[in-house]
């Protein structure tokens, strides 16, 4: 595939997925994985998992997973295309919606949508967990670390980087002891 064709295909994929990503970036993850890994083979499961891990460790909005996938596939040009195709169209929608906020906020349809869509988003976020788990976890210790972090987040409000750091340290120690 020529590089221009690749970048166009990426732009279209990220654009289409982003404008349907109601509820946030976690809902984009399964579709981007399906497109980029399963259908088009732009990157492998390993690269996807690494991009996912790095984007979660780094600070910043979780949209950066898309930037990182773009970077893995096509370097700086890929990063620019994936980031812009994800951010620009949705931000334009947000800009218009924000300007109409006073008018939108009290309409009946907004009230209905605000109650109707979140349960679907919950299903999409849990789907993201399954898809990323499938890509990133291949060992019982990984399952244990994921479970520990999940329980910590479900039960406490402290920064998730603390259990994430502990899990990482456990992984390194276990690998040195020869069982990870």
């Amino acid at each position: 595939m020529r590089n221009d064709d690749l970048l166009w295909a990426m732009a279209l994929t990220f654009f289409t997925t982003a404008i349907f990503s109601f509820g946030g970036i976690a809902t984009m993850i399964p579709e981007i994985h399906r497109q980029a890994v399963d259908i088009r083979g732009w990157l492998g499961n390993d690269d996807f998992a690494t991009a996912f891990a790095l984007s979660q460790i780094a600070p910043g909005p979780n949209i950066l997973l898309m930037s990182m996938i773009g970077w893995r596939v096509a370097g700086w040009a890929g990063l620019a295309v994936a980031t812009l195709a994800t951010i620009v169209p949705t931000s334009l929608i947000a800009l218009l919606a924000g300007r109409g906020e006073a008018r939108i906020a009290n309409t009946r349809w907004y009230m209905i949508a605000k109650r109707a869509l979140p349960p679907i988003v919950v299903g999409l976020i849990l789907s993201s967990g399954v898809v990323t788990g499938h890509a990133a976890i291949d060992h019982w210790l990984g399952v244990a670390i994921a479970g520990g972090v999940a329980i910590h987040i479900a039960l406490s409000r402290t920064n998730p980087l603390i259990p994430l750091g502990i899990g990482t340290a456990i992984g390194i120690a276990a690998a040195r002891l020869g069982f990870f």
Binding site: A136, A146, I153, T168, A174
Partner: peptide, 18 residues
């Protein structure tokens, strides 16, 4: 190993949030 473990932890973050 650290990246594998962090990726697993990040999966846990998604499940916890969900």
């Amino acid at each position: 190993a650290g990246t594998r473990a962090a990726a697993a932890g990040a999966v846990g973050m998604i499940f916890g949030t969900g």
